[in-house]
């Protein structure tokens, strides 16, 4: 959905850019003379951006609302704790287990990741699953992710956090049903 949003934004931006460039180029072509101030300032300056922006904002808000976490019965809840420079994950369904730099989730089910940090500010980002969310000391931020298909997804720390920033990565493994059940039984997949 965010990809589609991007293409809409890009197309709109290109059109507006070409329009403005055309207006400027035309200034050299046309004979000089009286120019209607109202047309430029009120119609182009005020009305035009307001209409475009209102439409855009509504669109963004709707997309944003759809991406919001909602209560669902088959919700899985996990915890992510960042530190310089690794990630530790814990699971509500499997108390006591902590995995290092690997997050296991079931595919096709919504997962809430409760994100926090043990030291500085970090950010949790799995580009193919969701946008990024910060890990702030003393605060817990919840991010909803959902993997459409089983597989491995690359995750990144995406808030600058010192000399180890480049390699501050983790892997998300999305299991199919059987794999997830096996993981919950404590078997190493």
């Amino acid at each position: 959905m965010i990809a589609q949003l991007w293409w809409v934004l890009l197309a709109g931006a290109t059109l507006i850019f070409l329009f403005v460039a055309g207006l400027i180029a035309w200034a050299w072509r046309r004979p000089s003379g009286e120019t209607d101030e109202r047309r430029f300032v009120i119609w182009l300056g005020l009305a035009f951006p307001m209409i475009v922006l209102a439409a855009l904002l509504a669109y963004g808000l709707i997309v944003g609302e759809r991406l919001l976490p909602r209560a669902t019965p088959d919700l899985v809840r996990v915890h992510a704790e960042a530190r310089q420079w690794d990630w530790r994950f814990r699971y509500d369904d499997l108390p006591g287990l902590e995995t290092d730099n690997v997050l296991h989730i079931p595919a096709d089910r919504p997962v809430d990741v409760a994100i926090t940090t043990a030291d500085v500010v970090h950010a949790f980002w799995v580009p193919r699953l969701a946008g990024k969310l910060d890990a702030v000391p003393g605060h817990v931020n919840v991010l909803r992710i959902e993997a459409d298909a089983p597989g491995r997804y690359e995750g990144l720390g995406s808030e600058f956090n010192g000399v180890g920033y480049r390699d501050h990565r983790f892997t998300v493994i999305a299991h199919d049903d059987a794999g997830w059940q096996a993981f919950l039984q404590g078997e190493t997949p």
């Binding site: 963004g60 808000l61 990024k132």
Partner: peptide, 14 residues
């Protein structure tokens, strides 16, 4: 304007 749209910013931020 693109990055002011929140869902897009979640991806583009940083």
């Amino acid at each position: 304007v693109m990055v002011a749209i929140v869902p897009f910013d979640w991806q583009a931020h940083d």
